[in-house]
Amino acid sequence: MTEVLYGTILSAMSTGLGALIILFIGQSMTHKWRDILLAFTAGIMMAASTMSLIPEALNAGGFLPLVVGIFLGVLTLTLLEKNIPHIDIAHNKKGIEFDEKAMLIVAAITLHNIPEGLSVGVSYASENGGDTGNLIAFAIGLQNAPEGFLVALFLVNQKISRLKAFIVATLTGTIEIFTGLLGFYLTSYVASLVPYGLSFAAGAMLFIIYKELIPESHGDGHERTSTYSFIIGLLFMILLIDLF
């Protein structure tokens, strides 16, 4: 229990760690470096989902639960995309006032963090809970850090104070603590849910990689650099899986 609590808190608070950068830099960051960060994160998450979550799900329940869980993860993210306002933060160049519309955007980002928290929680409930959970928490944490920075940068560009932008961006990640604990308890007490939970996490992560991270890292003419960064991230996570 202590381990899953620490893991969910650390992965969620990585959003705040990324947002912390906004207190020390200017209001801009080159698209090239944003794309490199996003692509590196995509590589990390790809290795985590295909080499950790999916094999664990297969071992726990076989192919059918894997298919069902992956499609449930993809469906959940699809419904969120269709029904909750979303903005391409990394490539947004025009400002809007921090009114109800901006609050909607912050709320949307918060809700998009729900499947990520579930991914961490169910990973700790697997047979190799500690190792798998720590790896997925690390992968989600790495994804949350640039996201937190981009959210804070977006808010600063809307003339919000740096401190307030940092606080708001950090708060968007806290929902992952609660959803992570929820995922852990559900799959811990209903053992048959473990393969579905693991594959749900894999499906959600694959959706985020292909729908969000890869397109956003290829939006400003840095495709080759981003591709290299993706491969480095992939290999880095494979090394961690091999070591731990």
Rank of each mutant, 00 (worst) to 15 (best):
G133V: 03
I84Q: 14
L72D: 07
L64P: 13
I44E: 02
I89T: 14
G117R: 02
T30D: 13
F71P: 00
E97S: 13
A48H: 00
T110G: 07
W33E: 09
D131N: 13
A139E: 03
G26D: 15
S123L: 01
I114E: 11
A145C: 05
H31L: 15
N134K: 13
E147H: 05
A107L: 10
T50R: 10
H86N: 15
T132V: 14
N134F: 09
T78G: 13
L58M: 09
N59Y: 14
G43H: 04
T30Y: 05
L38H: 04
G133N: 07
L72T: 11
D99Q: 07
P65Q: 06
I25K: 08
G95K: 14
V74T: 13
T132L: 13
L135K: 00
L38D: 11
A48Y: 03
A90T: 08
M29H: 05
F149K: 10
L104T: 09
L79G: 02
Y124V: 04
G26H: 03
K101I: 07
L58R: 11
P55K: 03
V122M: 09
S119W: 00
I114Y: 08
L64G: 14
N128Q: 08
V122S: 04
N144R: 10
V68T: 12
I36M: 05
L75W: 12
E127A: 11
D131H: 10
F71M: 10
S49Y: 08
I54L: 11
Q143M: 06
M103F: 15
N59A: 10
I25M: 12
A102L: 05
L77W: 15
N83G: 14
D131I: 15
F40W: 05
T76V: 14
G73Y: 04
N128G: 11
S49P: 04
I54H: 01
N134H: 09
A39I: 12
A42Y: 10
N144I: 02
E147M: 08
V68F: 01
I105Q: 14
I96L: 12
G133T: 00
L80P: 09
K82S: 03
A137P: 09
I89Y: 09
D88I: 12
V67P: 04
N128H: 02
G69W: 01
P85T: 11
T110P: 04
E56C: 05
L142R: 09
F138W: 00
I136V: 07
I105S: 06
Y124Q: 00
S49K: 10
F149N: 08
A139R: 01
I84A: 13
K93T: 06
L37A: 14
I109L: 12
L80T: 03
D99A: 12
L104P: 12
E100Y: 13
S126E: 09
V67Q: 14
H91G: 02
L66I: 07
A139P: 01
W33G: 07
A47Y: 01
S123E: 02
I114G: 02
P115A: 02
N144F: 02
L72M: 12
N113T: 05
G26I: 00
G26N: 08
H112K: 02
T30C: 05
V68D: 01
A108Q: 00
L38C: 06
K32R: 15
E56Q: 10
S28P: 01
L58S: 00
F71W: 05
F40P: 00
F149T: 06
A47K: 11
